[in-house]
């Protein structure tokens, strides 16, 4: 799958934000900022979406909805948290109904700060997201070629990662020993 980054579908969901970031996400799609020139297009259907933009710190009622939307999206997928509320909970962090950040509910890949996040920074987030999407879809292709399920592939990748970490640690220990000895 070459160059899928040129045409990902964008899905936006408001998980209890103040509306400011949602309007800025929409403003990104209009002529002045025009994120559509990057090949992304807004959709309302989670089943065909590639990049999920979440705004707002998630509240108790929105939590199952966000989880459901995330599960409905096909793999590979990228999640972008737009606005400081989606990053950490922001000004509403202490409010009783806020979980505090989108990453408490779904895994978030890219954080776009700001209150409200400016269209320029949202577009920057989208550009980073589509690079990541390209990388993930190449991995996904490799996975399909190898005939593995996502769980098997993830396990394999985790093991590889663990091996790498162990090797790096062994290398460090050896160097330290040399320095000491």
């Amino acid at each position: 799958m070459a160059n899928v980054k040129r045409s990902p579908w964008l899905l936006h969901y408001d998980g209890s934000s103040c509306n400011g970031c949602d309007i800025e996400v929409l403003a990104c799609m209009t002529p002045v900022y025009d994120a559509e020139r990057l090949g992304v297009e807004n959709t309302g259907d989670p089943m065909q979406a590639d990049i999920l933009l979440i705004t707002g710190g998630i509240n108790a009622q929105a939590e199952p909805v966000v989880k459901q939307i995330y599960d409905q999206m096909p793999r590979p997928k990228v999640v972008v948290a737009v606005g400081i509320c989606a990053c950490t909970g922001g000004v509403f962090k202490d409010a009783y109904n806020i979980k505090g950040g989108a990453d408490t509910v779904v895994p978030v890949d890219i954080y776009v700060p700001g209150c409200a996040a400016r269209p320029q920074s949202i577009i920057d987030g989208i550009i980073q997201a589509r690079e990541l999407f390209q990388k993930r879809s190449e991995e996904h292709d490799a996975m399909v070629k190898a005939g593995l399920t996502y769980e098997q592939y993830k396990k394999m990748k985790d093991e590889e990662e663990a091996k790498k970490v162990a090797a790096a640690k062994a290398e460090e220990d050896r160097r330290e020993e040399e320095n000491n000895g």
């Binding site: 408001d14 209890s16 934000s17 707002g56 710190g57 509240n59 009622q61 929105a62 909805v65 509403f92 409010a95 009783y96 109904n97 806020i98």
Partner: peptide
């Protein structure tokens, strides 16, 4: 769906 508890 967007109740945050702002008055609280």
């Amino acid at each position: 769906f967007i109740h945050r508890g702002l008055e609280g």
